[in-house]
Computed example of a mutant assay.
Amino acid sequence: MNSRHNQTNKSMLKSEEGMTLVEVLASILLLSLITTTFLSFFIQAAKVNNQTDAVNEATFIAQEQLELLTYYATTKTVDETLDLMETESNGFAIESHLSKNSGETLYRGTVEVSKEGKTYAQMETRLSFRTAEDLED
């Protein structure tokens, strides 16, 4: 009976199928390459989302500044308006300019929003500065 048991064990070992160490290592390598590829997609998507958030925030700030320029154009002088304009918001640097070419009646108002030297938003409008003194004349 003992020899029959040994023969059964030997036949089971011969017919038993399994994976070798090389196959296991190859499958681990393949899985790690696939996982790394997918992770790089997620990292790139996170970078794009951060950049999009920065552009959206800068655009909102620029639009807000243009609305302030438009409001001040009806109530303040050009110099007072420039003094009232913000120069920084949420880590962004804001540059507001008002210029008028000779012969033109409208001022050109520009707002540039940047961070660390990189411009994220730039907007422009045309304004007529009509203050109370102008209306009295």
Results as ranks from 00 to 15, higher is better:
residue 36 T to V: 07
residue 53 D to W: 08
residue 110 T to C: 00
residue 81 T to K: 06
residue 7 Q to H: 06
residue 81 T to Q: 04
residue 71 Y to H: 12
residue 19 M to D: 01
residue 115 K to E: 09
residue 105 T to A: 13
residue 33 L to H: 05
residue 23 E to A: 07
residue 83 D to K: 14
residue 136 E to W: 05
residue 107 Y to R: 05
residue 53 D to S: 14
residue 107 Y to V: 03
residue 121 A to M: 03
residue 89 S to Y: 13
residue 63 Q to S: 15
residue 135 L to K: 11
residue 36 T to S: 15
residue 34 I to L: 15
residue 101 N to Y: 03
residue 2 N to V: 08
residue 76 K to N: 13
residue 104 E to M: 10
residue 45 A to H: 09
residue 65 Q to E: 15
residue 129 F to A: 04
residue 135 L to Y: 04
residue 82 L to H: 07
residue 19 M to S: 10
residue 93 A to T: 13
residue 8 T to Y: 06
residue 37 T to M: 12
residue 89 S to M: 14
residue 81 T to G: 03
residue 62 A to H: 09
residue 12 M to H: 07
residue 54 A to D: 10
residue 93 A to N: 11
residue 137 D to R: 13
residue 34 I to H: 02
residue 79 D to R: 09
residue 114 S to N: 07
residue 28 I to S: 08
residue 37 T to N: 06
residue 12 M to D: 01
residue 98 L to Y: 05
residue 136 E to A: 11
residue 80 E to V: 02
residue 63 Q to D: 13
residue 54 A to E: 12
residue 56 N to D: 11
residue 71 Y to D: 10
residue 37 T to W: 05
residue 72 Y to G: 01
residue 96 S to H: 03
residue 84 L to V: 01
residue 80 E to I: 02
residue 51 Q to K: 10
residue 79 D to E: 15
residue 21 L to C: 05
residue 129 F to Q: 04
residue 2 N to S: 10
residue 92 F to R: 10
residue 94 I to A: 04
residue 20 T to I: 03
residue 122 Q to P: 00
residue 81 T to S: 12
residue 4 R to F: 06
residue 25 L to M: 15
residue 87 T to G: 08
residue 90 N to Q: 15
residue 120 Y to A: 04
residue 93 A to M: 03
residue 75 T to G: 01
residue 8 T to D: 02
residue 129 F to L: 07
residue 43 I to E: 05
residue 77 T to P: 00
residue 55 V to N: 04
residue 112 E to I: 12
residue 136 E to D: 04
residue 121 A to Q: 03
residue 126 R to K: 11
residue 65 Q to R: 14
residue 50 N to G: 09
residue 11 S to L: 15
residue 1 M to S: 11
residue 77 T to S: 14
residue 59 T to H: 09
residue 86 E to S: 15
residue 39 L to P: 00
residue 64 E to T: 15
residue 137 D to C: 09
residue 132 A to L: 12
residue 136 E to K: 13
residue 70 T to I: 06
residue 52 T to R: 08
residue 137 D to Y: 09
residue 95 E to T: 11
residue 71 Y to K: 14
residue 12 M to N: 05
residue 33 L to K: 05
residue 93 A to W: 00
residue 75 T to L: 05
residue 55 V to R: 13
residue 64 E to A: 15
residue 28 I to G: 01
residue 22 V to P: 01
residue 23 E to R: 07
residue 2 N to P: 01
residue 52 T to S: 14
residue 83 D to P: 00
residue 93 A to K: 11
residue 106 L to E: 06
residue 131 T to Y: 05
residue 72 Y to L: 11
residue 135 L to P: 00
residue 114 S to T: 09
residue 48 V to I: 13
